[in-house]
Design a protein around this nucleic acid. Structure first.
Length: 733
DNA sequence: GGAGACTGCGTTTTT
DNA sequence: CGCAGTCTCC
């Protein structure tokens, strides 16, 4: 049997999941049970069996990263052409369908995707236009309302409005919709709903895709929203096979609409065949016992218990610190100890419930000279300069995009201020035309008019130049001729931004080279090349990595949410206190507390060997000290699995001179290999330094990491300054 | 139009 | 406490 090697080394449950021939299969996959492997093996199995063409397979994931990983793993299993297989996120797949069938969907060919920030900005604009007090109805809340309505499948003006508040919000929803239609925009939930409506409204289209995708697979099914589940059911129809993988115990995104109830609904509605993957290949026994015991406190589970054939391993360790900085110091010591034992830094993770906790930890890490890497923060396509450049690109694709115009009409400054814009906006409103048309038809007179006219001719010229040009060429023209690059070149701290703009041109070139065609492998769809709209959609749907220097030898810092799906030799889970974890906002609701517990479960199951739990009696939060009880979750872990670590002997203070360590500790955060500074040197708070121009000083504070690392130095003669370590040639003194 | 002071707020986050 | 977003003054 040609497929036998795919099944080799799978356990019986995994093999059953891979080969299940039932129409509906629910794979209940515990943490570390090899679920991605099962999913990819199943796809390979289906194709290898010869009965299923890659063309008939639709695989849905939650993140682009997961989609990429799935594709990579499938190609190692299947040395054949996997083109024609559709693998992507819900949003990515919906975008694809909407692009191909934009006419039937009632969208312009070059419709743009609004990310959450764009949506917010548009809403603010509309609220201002309606004279609604933003204090009483914040754009955030209305956006949340609109997204929830779309999630329910409700269009603007469709609901019954009795509540005056809801009535007002519905009015905003209506205006927002109209504006989106006018400008050719679709927000994230719109992609899903519009695609759903496209299929429900077109029998032929629906029949086509139903018969095409005979095999639908879904990863992280516990994270699907109700609408996404509806979409899946619609596409599956009466015949297609549906194989979904998920873990109700790892459902931690309820707050943004995920509904683990889809799992039990799937079970009852489809009579799904349930396969449980409970053998864990990641963690030692004590860790799994702790996780099992904890999660047992949640009622309403589908039921599942992890086990391992490995031994019990080390006990968990609980360190209760007096305060947050002692907690951090303890972590640093243990990290160093493990590193000396041979555990790689990149195999250690520091997890916390909320981002605010990272500051103290980072501070201590920086002083200790341990290299570390923080996940989270701004991603490439979310950066200001990139969003500006994208706005120009959007205008090239579609000058009727008011949002894009408003964003950059005066960036770089062209003397187009609020007053001038008001005139243009009024003209657009009066005549029911776009801002672009209004600006072009009758630019305001005087100095301001010159700015508007200049902008109009710039965009027109860019549009003319774009015809027949490649993506990279268009991007380059925009970056250069818009004046954006020059703007940042003139800024003192603009070097990174200039670099990012160049990187955008590279990204466009890469996208052009890698993406052959959206409709590739779709003989029934009209062939077309890669367009600017495709690239812009890519930018909106995949905002890029939010951390640089992957693979670096550095301790990994992230929220528990961000750690889902990852694994580490050693995990440090910090801030295990009531109010923090479980978070105070979640403890009043049963469902909230259960989600917190699942979050704790996720955190525990990240660790392979070493699992440290830490809490602090006192903690600085929002500028004041708070005294917390240890987390109730600590009490839910059997005491015999936990070794309590006694408080440490009095610490050496950070004020004592420790000239020796500056030489031996390697602060990767502070000393990029290519930096001009002495290799192997390190910086810490309180250290005396010498600067070529500013003279002697002492380091007061530090922030950032890698190439972004900056220190605050109090100079004897010239006062306090922030210096980028990469550029400032500081000398330890 | 832009820099600097001021205010208020403060989970988790992908698309 | 630290940040982001707003306001105010030049």
């Amino acid at each position: 049997m040609i497929s036998s090697n795919i099944l080799e080394s799978l356990n019986p449950q995994q093999a059953a999941a891979v080969t299940s021939d039932r129409r509906a299969t629910l794979i209940l996959a515990g943490a570390g049970s090899g679920k991605t492997r099962v999913l990819t093996s199943r796809i390979a199995w289906l194709v290898r069996s010869g009965e299923v063409s890659p063309h008939s397979i639709l695989a849905v994931t939650f993140t682009n990263k997961a989609a990429r990983e799935m594709l990579t793993r499938i190609s190692t299993l299947l040395p054949i052409n996997i083109r024609g297989m559709w693998v992507g996120t819900f949003h990515g797949l919906c975008n694809r369908l909407l692009r191909i069938h934009h006419r039937e969907a009632g969208l312009p060919e070059t419709f743009q995707i609004l990310d959450s920030a764009d949506q917010q900005a548009l809403l603010k604009r509309i609220l201002r236009g309606m004279n609604i007090d933003e204090e009483k109805s914040p754009a955030r809340e209305i956006g949340w309302f609109i997204n929830a309505e779309k999630e329910q499948g409700r269009r603007a003006g469709a609901g019954d409005v009795s509540d005056p508040m809801v009535e007002r919000w519905s009015e905003v929803y209506l205006r927002y919709e109209q504006q989106c239609v006018r400008e050719g925009l679709a927000d994230f939930p719109e992609l899903l709903l519009r695609c759903f409506e496209l299929l429900t409204g077109n029998e032929d289209l629906l029949a086509h895709y139903r018969s095409r995708f005979s095999h639908i697979l879904v990863d992280e099914f516990q994270d699907t929203s109700r609408l996404q589940y509806q979409w899946l059911k619609l596409l599956a129809g009466e015949r297609s096979s549906l194989c979904v993988v998920g873990d109700d115990d790892q459902s931690i995104y309820g707050f943004r609409g995920a509904s683990a109830q889809n799992m039990s609904d799937f079970q009852t509605e489809f009579g799904a065949h349930v396969i449980k993957l409970e053998q864990n290949y990641r963690s030692y026994g004590a860790i799994l016992d702790a996780a099992n015991a904890l999660i047992r406190n949640n009622p309403h589970r589908l039921g599942k218990e992890l086990w391992t054939s490995q031994g019990r391993g080390e006990l968990l360790r609980h360190f209760e610190a007096a305060d947050d900085s002692e907690e951090a110091s303890y972590v640093v010591e243990e990290v160093k100890r493990l590193r000396d034992q041979g555990v790689e830094l990149s195999q250690m993770a520091l997890l916390y419930r909320s981002n605010a906790q990272s500051r103290v930890l980072e501070h201590t890490l920086f002083s200790s000279g341990l290299p570390y890497r923080v996940y989270g923060g701004l991603r490439f396509f979310e950066r200001q300069e990139i969003k500006h450049a994208l706005a120009y690109l959007r205008l090239v694709a579609n000058p009727g995009d008011d949002a894009a115009l408003l964003r950059v009409v005066n960036i770089p400054a062209r003397g187009v201020g609020a007053r001038t814009l008001e005139l243009v906006q009024q003209a657009a409103l009066d005549q029911g035309i776009s801002l672009w048309e209004a600006a072009r038809a009758r630019p305001p007179s005087g100095k301001a008019g010159a700015g508007v006219a200049g902008f109009v001719s710039l965009i027109e010229s860019l549009r003319a130049q774009a015809v027949g040009q490649g993506l990279a060429g268009i991007a380059e023209a925009v970056v250069e001729r818009s004046g954006l690059k020059a703007l940042y070149q003139a800024e003192r701290d603009g070097a990174d931004r200039v670099e990012n703009l160049d990187e955008l041109v590279n990204a466009a070139a890469t996208f052009e080279a890698d993406t052959h065609s959206l409709t590739e492998g779709d003989p029934e769809a009209p062939p077309r090349g890669v367009t600017l709209a495709d690239f812009l959609a890519h930018a909106a749907l995949e905002a890029g990595d939010n951390q640089a220097e992957a693979g670096a030898q550095a301790l990994q810092l992230m929220t528990v949410h961000a750690s889902k799906g990852l694994e580490f030799e050693a995990v440090f889970l910090c801030g295990l206190e009531e109010g923090l974890f479980p978070h105070e906002n979640a403890v009043n609701q049963e469902s909230g507390l259960e989600e917190e517990r699942r979050l704790m479960y996720v955190a525990l199951t990240r660790a392979r060997h070493h699992l440290y739990l830490t809490s602090a009696e006192a903690r600085m939060l929002h500028g004041r000290s708070r005294y917390n009880q240890p987390s109730r979750f600590m009490a839910e872990i059997p005491a015999e699995l936990v070794e309590r670590i006694a408080k440490r002997p009095p610490r050496w203070t950070s004020h004592t001179a420790t000239p020796s360590w500056a030489g031996n500790a390697r602060a990767a955060a502070a000393s990029p290999a290519q930096s001009a500074g002495a290799p192997g040197s390190a910086w810490r708070i309180g250290q005396n330094v010498l600067h070529g121009k500013f003279g002697p000083g002492v380091i007061m504070d530090a922030e950032g990491r890698g190439l972004d690392a900056r220190v605050q130095v109090k100079f004897r003669d010239v006062g306090v300054k922030w210096l980028a370590l990469e550029y400032a040639k500081l000398i330890p003194a």
